[in-house]
Write a protein that binds this DNA or RNA. Structure first.
Lengths: 193, 193
DNA sequence: GTCTTGAATTGATCTATATCAAGTTCGTAG
DNA sequence: CTACGAACTTGATATAGATCAATTCAAGAC
């Protein structure tokens, strides 16, 4: 295998909008390798997100802060796209952090390069539309989830839907992701076990 | 003025991706008039959203239910797009309701027609990508808001950001939209006034 | 106009979850 | 291997907001 992260990327792109050989050659050449060590920040509040990431290995977390406390918005690992989308898409300063919470191997494309690819290829433009749609569907579902379920229900659903996340992400971060304190999550784990 | 709802639509489209005269003529011809009387349902759980709406006048609400209680997800009025996006985009059954809460005049385009326009015109495809991006940015922001702020803060922010919504939408719906009970919203109104 | 029905308010409780305060365990740097 | 700080757990208490219940208000039907 030549460079499996690109193979994984191609698979994810083709699933939404197949590219020709030629398009893929050009498009994939714009994605550059990037690594980040555990605890390294890739973006901090006030900065504009310049890149769109595809994570091959490692774990990324996106979080904001409200006063003292951190609010985790999401995690990425295992051949998934990552980044602070709203800042990337709007090219306005973020108020979120993007941080590696394990050593990460990634590839990434710059905003300018991606826009250029959108201009150049309708198939890439389509992928962009459909990717945004997928993200929108995901965020909408999570929004309803967060509102509809109690702490216990949310915990059980996470166990069911993303059992592996517990291997990658410390409980205190998951607690904040689920909108509860670490103490509450700890008690739920005991109770449900 | 010929038909102002189409003018408003054109303005919103052009803001993200300008269409040529020719493209607009074809594209706009796919949007058909639709009215809905107060309290009429445009979509119910189990159905697949077949249309994407542009609301000229009236008010639309999107909501789900958890047991007995309704959970309001959003409202549309005044030259805004509406619909149950996740079902429309995925063409899978929804678990939400789409309901007119005032007499509505709208135009709408069917899923098949819109996909056809995406195929036909790169500029429309681009509009689709950018529209999804805008929606994604909005939903992401609201997600962080819902998590970061207390009931009182959320109420104050709504007053500040969408003062007009109080004219259109009954308080009990707004309460559920803000993630609190009508009693709590009522007390906050008294307190803040 | 009055009747009806749901919306909004107000007050009295209740409860899920937060907060505060110790422990205990784990991971990792040396 | 040890030790130090962070992560996690556990218990006691506090509280924002929910729930329950009664009253007032307002808009559409007749």
């Amino acid at each position: 295998m030549e460079d499996s992260i690109y193979t994984a990327l191609k698979k994810r792109i083709d699933a939404l909008s197949p590219l020709t050989e030629e398009e893929w050659t050009d498009f994939s050449s714009k994605w550059k390798h990037k690594t980040a060590a555990k605890n390294e920040y890739l973006l901090k509040p006030g900065q504009v997100e310049g890149y769109f990431y595809f994570v091959g290995s490692g774990v990324i977390r996106v979080f904001g802060e409200k006063g003292e406390e951190e609010i985790n918005v999401g995690f990425t690992y295992d051949n998934e796209f990552s980044g602070v989308y709203d800042s990337f898409l709007s090219q306005k300063p973020t108020d979120l952090y993007l941080q590696a919470i394990a050593d990460c191997k990634m590839i990434r494309i710059s905003y300018a390069d991606l826009m250029n690819q959108f201009d150049k290829y309708k198939s890439v433009e389509r992928w962009g539309r459909m990717f945004n749609a997928e993200m929108l569907i995901g965020v909408s579902r999570r929004q309803v989830e967060a509102r509809s379920f109690s702490a216990e229900e949310k915990f059980k659903r996470l166990v069911k839907n993303s059992p592996h996340i517990f291997q990658f992400v410390p409980l205190k971060h998951l607690a904040s992701y689920l909108g509860m304190t670490p103490e509450t999550l700890s008690r739920l784990r005991k109770k449900v076990r």
